[in-house]
């Protein structure tokens, strides 16, 4: 028996919007720790890891570990039927082949339940090693989204170079080239507007902008984004989900042939 009641149902709606274009089908894992997901895109180039901690739910009952295979497009269709202010409860029976999403309006005058068929998904769970990253950039998530969107109108790939001077996003295409440099800036009114660059050593990596743009669909979940890089390793683009957990996107770099 599984019953998870989330007062801020809009968080779950936003999570689905953030990942449904990257991943088609995925197993949601439910344990005493929380509600989580790990899935790769169909090309196995990017990986998304989601955690919504048990403490973040108003009610969290998970009698035994449960893995529920869902088609994210179908799940998104169902969650779109929930109002932004609705409370969402996820319910499932052990060994059942459906999951129920229950939506309660804030003043309890409308209660809906949507039952969705589960599916068997063969997915390998990857071990993500603990890494000390050589460059960690925290910046406003909207700024990061803007840069990725702008550069993708010029080129297909972005070179992200981080040094003590700042972080440079560069691209090249048929019509020309572009560079955007962001310097550390902590003299801002609100902490979420700051750009903070922590560098152990300079890092330069090349990535497909198509994936970066897909990750920025998580922008509504957080005012800030953290981009962690080490030379010759996948980048991690992390959006914290207030008081609940995180959504992390890992993207393998491109290398010169």
């Amino acid at each position: 028996m599984l019953e998870l009641r989330l007062l801020q149902g809009s968080l779950l709606k936003k999570v689905l919007e953030a990942i449904k274009d990257l991943v088609t089908d995925a197993n949601f894992d439910c344990s005493a720790t929380g509600f989580s997901l790990q899935a790769m895109d169909s090309s196995h180039v990017a990986l998304v890891a989601l955690l919504l901690r048990a403490e973040g739910f108003e009610h969290y009952r998970c009698d035994r570990n449960l893995s529920m295979g869902m088609n994210l497009n179908n799940m998104s269709k169902m969650l779109k039927c929930a109002g932004n202010d609705d409370i969402i409860t996820i319910k499932a029976d052990d060994g059942g082949d459906t999951v129920t999403f229950m939506f309660e309006s804030p003043n309890q005058d409308k209660i809906s339940d949507f039952e969705m068929k589960l599916m068997d998904i063969d997915s390998e769970h990857l071990g993500i090693p603990e890494t000390e990253y050589e460059a960690i950039i925290r910046m406003p998530s909207q700024e990061f989204a803007r840069i990725c969107r702008d550069l993708s109108t010029i080129g297909d790939t972005v070179v992200i170079s981080a040094s003590k001077e700042g972080v440079k996003f560069s691209t090249k295409g048929d019509i020309g080239s572009a560079n955007v440099v962001c310097r550390q800036n902590t003299s801002v009114d609100k902490p979420e507007d700051a750009t903070v660059i922590e560098i152990q050593q300079p890092v330069s990596l090349t990535f497909a902008l198509r994936y970066m743009n897909s990750f920025t669909k998580a922008t509504p979940l957080s005012n800030t984004v953290t981009v962690s890089m080490s030379n010759e390793l996948p980048v991690v683009v992390e959006y914290k989900i207030a008081e609940m957990g995180y959504i992390r996107f890992y993207l393998a770099p491109k290398i010169e042939e």
Partner: peptide
């Protein structure tokens, strides 16, 4: 041109 690496060459199946 650049070659796209796969995430599975960095993270191993558990």
């Amino acid at each position: 041109s650049n070659k796209q690496l796969r995430i599975t060459s960095f993270f191993q199946a558990r």
